[in-house]
Simulated assay, not measured.
Amino acid sequence: MGQTDFLTTQQGRKLAYHQTAGKAPGVVFLGGFKSDMEGTKAVHLEDWARRTGRAFLRFDYSGHGQSSGAFVDGCIGDWAGDAMTVIRDLTDGPQVLVGSSMGGWISLLCAREMPDKVAGLVTIAAAPDFTEDSMWAGFNGAQRAELQDRGQVALPSDYGEPYIITRRLIEDGRNHLVLRDPLPLPFPVRFLQGTADEDVEMSVALRLLEHAQGPDMRLTLVDGADHRFSDPDCLALIEEAVGQVLARSGGRG
C-alpha cells in the first residue's frame, strides 16, 4: 500500500504515516483506540482518494501501529497532539477529518484547537469523553481502587488482548473533555453511527449531535451496523459522507 514515512514530533515521538498526493481539501483519517492505519476503513478511504484524485493522509498515533512508543504510556493528550502535529506539518490548507471511535474525539479536539485547519468533519462511531463517561463511570469499586493503587487496570477486549487502562489515561482524559463546554463546529459535519454498536452506544451520537453547535450537522444511524462499521454498505456510506462534506466545504471537483 505504498511507502511508510515517518515524522518526528517535538517530543521525540516517531509517527508513521502514508500520504497520497491529490487535490484540496485533503482528507485525513484518524483511527481508534489501539487501532492503526492499516485498518479496513483507512485503507478503503486511501483507495477512494486515489480513484478520485483527492489528497489523503493516514497515520499511527504514538504507541500504535508502526509509530514509536508503548501504548500503555500514551493518553488522549499525547494522541491528540500527534494528530495536530501531523495535520499541521504534513498538510496544506484546511482538511476534512474522518475520525473513527477515539479518532472522533480527537477530531473534535483538533476542530476546537486548530479550526483554521478543518474544512469539515466526518465521525464514525465517535467516542468523545469515553475515558470518563464509559471507562471511569463503568468501573466498580475494586477496579477504581486498583487503578489508584497500582496505576492501571486490565479490561477485557473483543479485539484481542485485554486493554491496560492507566491512571494517567483517565486523569489526562479529564483535561480534554468536549461534551462539557460549548463545541462549535462551523463547517459541514456528518456523524455516522451503527445501532448495533456494543462499544459506543447510540445515545453518545445523539448527545454529540445535541451538544455541538454548527450550521450543517447531520447524524445518520445505520440499523444493525456494529462498531467496526466496515461492511461494504458502511464503507460506501463513509465515502458518501466524505463526498457531501467536501462538496459543501467548497471542495467539489
Rank of each mutant, 00 (worst) to 15 (best):
G120A: 06
E240T: 05
S101W: 07
M102H: 06
R144S: 08
M102V: 03
F139Y: 08
A205Y: 02
G141C: 05
G74W: 04
D158M: 07
V242Y: 00
D172I: 12
A125Q: 12
F59R: 03
R50W: 01
G31H: 10
S134A: 15
K34E: 14
S107R: 02
G22Y: 12
S203P: 06
E171P: 10
F71W: 07
Q193I: 03
V245H: 08
T40K: 14
G93A: 04
D5C: 09
S134T: 15
G69T: 03
H18K: 14
G2S: 15
M202F: 12
V153E: 04
L177V: 13
I165M: 06
W136A: 15
D47H: 13
E161Y: 06
L108D: 04
A49N: 00
L90I: 09
M135Q: 10
A196M: 10
R54Q: 11
A225E: 09
L208I: 02
P215N: 10
A205R: 00
F56M: 10
G160N: 06
G151A: 09
I164G: 02
L45Y: 03
V86I: 13
L219C: 05
L7T: 05
E132H: 15
D5P: 02
V86F: 03
M84L: 12
R207G: 04
K14F: 00
S35W: 01
S35D: 12
D133E: 15
H211I: 04
F130W: 08
V189G: 09
G81Y: 02
L206I: 03
A119L: 08
R50V: 06
R218F: 00
L237H: 05
A196Q: 10
T8G: 06
A154H: 14
G63V: 00
W136K: 10
R50S: 00
T195H: 11
R88K: 10
C110P: 05
S62F: 04
A126E: 09
L183R: 11
G31M: 03
D47N: 12
P188Q: 12
D199M: 14
D92T: 15
P182L: 13
D36E: 09
L185N: 04
F6Y: 15
G243A: 10
I87Y: 01
G69R: 04
T85M: 03
D73C: 04
S62H: 06
D199K: 14
D149G: 03
A225I: 01
L208R: 03
E239F: 03
D92M: 09
R168N: 14
P215A: 07
M84C: 02
I170G: 06
G12E: 12
F6E: 01
A127W: 05
Q193M: 09
V86M: 10
L185S: 05
D78A: 09
S100Y: 09
P186L: 13
S100M: 07
T20R: 07
A247I: 10
S230Q: 14
A205K: 01
V153S: 07
L192I: 10
E113Y: 13
D197Y: 08
I106K: 06
V200T: 07
G22N: 07
T85L: 03
P184A: 08
D82W: 00
D233H: 12
K41I: 14
